[in-house]
């Protein structure tokens, strides 16, 4: 995995992050389509996610909870606005109660995921040779309705953020070897 581009747009409160994978597009799609895979990467190891409902169709929902180190469960939900396997996914992500029902007045973000074969892309020209395996480019855009919503979402995840900081050290070391 390599992050190849990050765009921050403070005027639309949108973060767009593009990453490259050596795996073919169907396998990258499975990371979203398979709830057992999804729960292994959505939350950090110290705040693991458990997916209790997963219906990857337009109008379908995902319900999950993340378990804090103290054992508290924080519920969240996704609602799919558009699903087009294996290239595109649009959904909203918000806080929920134990049943996955949205909590009123809590922030909701919109997430757009786009996957594309990257074998023909020139990309950053890192000279990976002519493999028969095609890689995949994934672009994820996350948009918040307001700065307040973004602030709320991020401060709610503060404990999570502290755990993430520890994980970053591994990422930095891995990046050095890339």
């Amino acid at each position: 995995m390599t992050v190849t581009d990050v765009q921050q747009d403070p005027t639309t409160l949108t973060l767009t992050i593009r990453s490259e994978y050596t795996s073919p597009i169907d396998r990258v799609w499975q990371m979203w389509a398979d709830p057992r895979k999804l729960e292994r990467w959505w939350g950090p190891p110290t705040f693991p996610a458990t997916v209790t409902e997963h219906n990857l169709t337009t109008g379908g929902r995902v319900v999950y909870f993340m378990t804090s180190p103290e054992g508290d469960r924080h519920f969240g939900w996704w609602e799919f606005k558009a699903v087009d396997a294996p290239t595109s996914l649009r959904f909203e992500d918000g806080f929920g109660d134990e049943t996955g029902a949205p909590i009123p007045d809590m922030p909701v973000s919109s997430i757009a995921v786009d996957l594309a074969d990257s074998d023909s892309d020139s990309g950053s020209g890192s000279g990976s040779g002519s493999g028969s395996d095609s890689g995949t480019t994934m672009t994820i855009a996350t948009t918040f309705p307001s700065a307040e919503a973004m602030d709320q979402m991020i401060s709610m995840g503060m404990a999570e953020g502290m755990a993430l900081a520890l994980g970053q050290i591994d990422d930095l070391l891995a990046a050095d070897n890339a």
Partner: peptide, 21 residues
Amino acid sequence: LLDQLEQVWRDRLGRFGSVLA
């Protein structure tokens, strides 16, 4: 805030890449 959100996604994609591999 976008800086913090970027870090959340960078970490998440790091795990995404490991599980995918």
